[in-house]
């Protein structure tokens, strides 16, 4: 196929692509531009008070240590959850892709995807029932174990991490599974016949070849967790204040949309910088 397109091909291409681009414009570009605009406004445009364009919102974000402390806290939370998701998700995907065949694989897959079918709020409240003092988990363990036990997991950072890992683990399993599935079994057989130990196969063959899936999963999990607010608020209690909950407060509790928008774009910038710094590693992994 040559580089230049005929007029007919071009028209067909435009017809095929226009719905996607139209959707992107309407659903993502327009609202995001409106928010970017709000982040530079001194008051909420459209209200009765006069407003002008200003950098004050961004100045406020960087002037107060509160937001930077919370941003750091959110980044640490996102890294922790991402690492746990990878550590738990990759072995699951490996077993699913390479060891299990037929009906049982389908059944296990269903179990992985099942959480996606329920509302995330319902999932979090279920965790609250499980984790709280005298809750399902404590009663269950008490029934099995001979000694007295008091977990008190609810309203701790641990509870937030458990809730987030549960919500985001399927992404890592699915992306890793797809990447592992693409690896030819003959490669593994060949390695084994040359005397490679299982650990060597994992380290030199499986992880490098499925890196694209692992990285895609990590990005899919890391980015939304930095801005997560629902899980920390419900499961975190006193320690559940994060960058995302402060943004939510600005929008729904104190009606400071400009500051909320500025906080959101600072978050977006930070995430882009992190992804940019990781880009060389990501490219190497994906290649």
């Amino acid at each position: 196929m040559s580089g230049t397109l005929t007029r007919g091909e071009r028209r067909r291409l435009a017809t095929l692509l226009s719905p996607a681009y139209l959707w992107l414009t309407v659903a993502i570009f327009l609202p995001l531009s409106a928010m970017l605009f709000f982040s530079f406004a001194s008051e909420m445009p459209g209200g009765d008070t006069a407003w002008q364009l200003t950098l004050d919102n961004y100045r406020e974000v960087f002037a107060s240590p509160t937001y930077l402390i919370l941003l750091r806290k959110s980044l640490i939370l996102a890294s922790t959850v991402t690492l746990i998701c990878l550590a738990v998700g990759f072995p699951c995907a490996l077993v699913l892709a390479k060891s299990i065949r037929g009906r049982s694989r389908e059944a296990l897959f269903l179990l992985v995807i099942l959480p996606f079918w329920s509302n995330s709020l319902v999932r979090i409240f279920s965790w609250a029932i499980v984790l709280r003092g005298n809750g399902v988990l404590e009663l269950g363990l008490e029934a099995v174990l001979p000694f007295d036990i008091r977990l008190n997991l609810m309203f701790t950072t641990g509870a937030v991490i458990i809730g987030l890992v549960h919500s985001y683990l399927p992404y890592v399993i699915l992306t890793s599974y797809l990447a592992l599935q693409a690896i030819d079994d003959k490669l593994i057989d060949a390695a084994r016949s040359m005397g490679a130990s299982p650990l060597t196969i994992l380290r030199r063959l499986l992880i490098p070849l499925s890196a694209s899936g692992l990285i895609a999963g990590a990005v899919l999990v890391f980015v939304p967790i930095v801005g997560s607010f629902m899980e920390p608020r419900i499961l975190g209690g006193r320690v559940g204040t994060y960058y995302g909950t402060v943004i939510e407060d600005q929008f729904v509790a104190v009606y400071n949309w400009p500051l909320g928008a500025a906080l959101s774009f600072v978050l977006l910038a930070v995430v882009l910088v992190i992804l940019g710094l990781a880009a060389p590693a990501l490219r190497r992994g994906a290649a």
């Binding site: 107060s64 806290k73 402060v246």
Partner: peptide
């Protein structure tokens, strides 16, 4: 209040 909560 936000500073107090953030310090937790």
């Amino acid at each position: 209040w936000q500073a107090l909560k953030a310090a937790q």
